[in-house]
């Protein structure tokens, strides 16, 4: 199960943080700081997996943004790596050529997309088209 998802830029500013487990605010800040420290300086040739406390973080870097998933130690790393990419493709499609600023100004939409993609720490939908269509329907409700 996914325990949390973080989107951070190189400077460590959190652009999106979604926790599927209850954590204190202070603990969340600590986690965000530690995960950033773990991933930011890793050689791009290295694995995309880092052990983090009793779990592991699967991360992937897109330009200046790090997408990190914290998952259980027995989870399939390669599958989660693939799901990060799928999420990025969805964002890219939705914002047509997504950049960090899109995520800053439309953070609530990013959360909405994420909620269509992952729920309760598990994958909810694997079709990019289905999610984009769903987002279109939701926007019509506004």
């Amino acid at each position: 199960m996914i325990r949390f998802i973080l989107l951070q830029n190189r400077q460590g500013k959190t652009r999106l943080a979604k926790y599927y487990i209850p954590l204190e605010e202070s603990e969340k800040h600590k986690v965000e700081y530690e995960v950033h420290r773990l991933v930011v300086n890793r050689d791009p040739k290295f694995t995309n997996f880092v052990e983090f406390r009793t779990h592991k973080v699967i991360y992937r870097r897109y330009a200046g943004l790090f997408f990190s998933l914290c998952v259980d130690i027995t989870d399939n790393e390669l599958a989660y790596l693939e799901s990060i990419h799928l999420f990025v493709e969805i964002l890219d499609h939705f914002f047509s050529n997504v950049c960090e600023l899109d995520l800053v100004f439309n953070f609530h939409k990013v959360y909405l997309i994420l909620d269509e993609f992952i729920l309760a720490g598990e994958l909810q939908e694997t079709s990019k088209r289905a999610i984009i269509e769903r987002m279109g329907e939701l926007e019509k409700q506004e």
Partner: peptide, 19 residues
């Protein structure tokens, strides 16, 4: 096309089923 990821149809579903 809807579920295709690098030539494989819905690897996520594969994985859930295997699990």
């Amino acid at each position: 096309p809807e579920y295709d990821i690098s030539g494989i149809t819905d690897p996520f579903l594969h994985i859930r089923l295997l699990k």
